[in-house]
Amino acid sequence: MDDLDRNLIELFAAEPRVGVLEASRRLGVARGTVQARLDKLESSGIVTGWGPDLAPEALGYPVTAFLTLEISQSAGHEAVAEQLAAVPEVLEAYTITGAGDLWCRVVARTNADLQRVIDRVVAASGVQRASTVMALATQVPYRVLPLAGQVGRVD
């Protein structure tokens, strides 16, 4: 990644609907250059999507919790993850090290609704136990953009 790639990423992150022609005008490069760079960033896996970012709170899911799941080793992580993917309130799931086997970020409509979500997660075949931690406030939201600014730079 070079400065043009970083500038493109920053521009499209700030204004996702800016368009290739306007981006080329603002960055002072040819439209074809912008399109080629965007295609390269996408094909290399750096840019993973162009869809809208959604706010669970605005969709009626203001409660966020983190579940640490212990699973039966014979069940396998992939089989459990496949079942978790069928639960709309499960936003992410990761295989982890430490006391648990899988970590999930989930959302719910209310604190009481969180129990329904947990029950649905625990009902997945292979899940033996879940421990839950509720999020009180977001201090640093999920972000990757600052990493793009660091690629190729030495501090």
Score class of each variant (00 low, 15 high):
A81F: 03
T97M: 10
I118W: 07
S131L: 13
W103A: 02
Q150T: 10
D119F: 07
V117E: 00
L69E: 03
A112G: 05
L84S: 06
A75R: 03
R120Q: 11
S74R: 14
T95N: 05
C104K: 01
T138H: 12
G98A: 14
I118D: 04
L102V: 02
V122A: 15
R105C: 01
V144W: 10
V133W: 10
V144M: 13
Q139L: 13
L145V: 10
V127D: 04
D101V: 10
Q128N: 13
A108F: 00
E89Y: 02
I96T: 15
S74M: 07
I118P: 03
L102D: 01
I71D: 03
A75V: 01
I96Y: 10
V127S: 07
A75M: 03
Q83C: 10
T95Y: 02
V80W: 01
R143C: 08
A85M: 14
A99G: 11
L102C: 04
A81R: 12
A124I: 00
S125W: 08
L91N: 01
S74D: 08
L145N: 03
V117W: 00
E92F: 13
H77W: 03
W103L: 05
L91Q: 05
Q83N: 07
W103V: 02
L114D: 02
A124C: 15
L147E: 07
V80P: 00
A130T: 07
R116Q: 14
L136M: 12
D101Q: 12
G100L: 02
V90K: 03
I118V: 15
A93K: 06
A75Q: 03
R116A: 15
I118L: 14
Q150Y: 06
I71V: 15
V144C: 05
A81C: 11
A148H: 05
L145D: 09
L69R: 02
V80C: 02
L136R: 13
R120D: 04
A135Y: 06
L136A: 12
S131G: 12
G76A: 11
R143Y: 09
A137C: 09
L114I: 09
V90N: 05
S131Y: 15
P88R: 02
E78N: 07
P88G: 03
V144R: 14
